[in-house]
Design a protein around this nucleic acid. Structure first.
Length: 214
DNA sequence: ACCCAGGTGGCCC
DNA sequence: GGGCCACATGGG
């Protein structure tokens, strides 16, 4: 019940975010999910804009373009050599195995997740973000903010990705919209109240829950 | 100047 | 099979 309660508190505090992940197409969401690894979203926007401006966002373009050019575009999002490679890996996989990202995403969740994880540069979180936000599969995405939040409110102590994911999905047995919304709200919470450098625990909308659950 | 941000894979033992 | 570490730019 606690997980459901937290959702309502967050939604009341931040309001509905509806389709929270920015991006006009599934592929753009995939690109964003890779570029945002370990980096604030603000850094990613510039990179995506540049890819669009140069008309090399699409998978066909990403595998065809000069790696130097790709790296220049990706640069603002950090780890640009790694991330360029990861975009190429992903694009090549889609084209070789499914032709389009839409076809790849439309397969059953189990096999889709296996495929995503098998691609070098796609881990648990990125795979789930792609499934949830680009593919509209009912999957809850766990990230650093989620871990911080669960620790903070006294939910069972674990760092394990799937343990945390199971905890949320077990209680919510949800629906894609709910998972989209919940993860978005947690990241809003993290962005405003749970910065590692200057957390604002005293003003956090979850402070009551955290106190009463100790 | 320093710390940190919506992770992942490789290497070492 | 867990614990480190490189990866790199940009903003506070």
């Amino acid at each position: 019940m606690l997980i459901t309660k937290i959702f309502h508190i967050l939604r009341d505090h931040f309001g509905c975010q509806l389709y929270w992940w920015p991006g006009d197409t599934p592929w753009e969401i995939v690109v964003g999910a890779i570029l945002t690894q370990q980096v604030a979203w603000a850094n990613v926007e510039k990179a995506i804009e540049t890819l669009k401006d140069n008309n090399i966002l699409e998978p066909e373009k990403i595998i065809a373009v000069d790696i130097d050019k790709l790296q220049q575009c990706v640069r603002p999002s950090g780890f640009y050599r790694q991330k360029s490679k990861r975009l190429v890996n992903m694009a090549r996989y889609v084209l070789d195995n499914h032709l389009t990202i839409e076809r790849m995403l439309s397969q059953p969740a189990i096999s889709l997740r296996k495929e995503l994880i098998s691609i070098n540069g796609i881990g648990f979180e990125t795979a789930d973000a792609i499934m949830c936000y680009a593919g509209s599969h009912p999957v809850f995405v766990v990230d650093e903010f989620t871990r911080r939040m669960t620790r903070c409110v006294g939910l069972p102590e674990t760092e394990d990705y799937h343990a945390i994911q199971d905890m949320f999905m077990g209680e919510l047995c949800g629906d894609n919209r709910l998972y989209k919304e919940y993860h978005g709200l947690i990241d809003e919470l993290g962005f405003y109240y749970c910065k590692k450098s200057k957390p604002r625990c005293d003003e956090c909308p979850l402070r009551e829950v955290a106190l009463s659950n100790r």
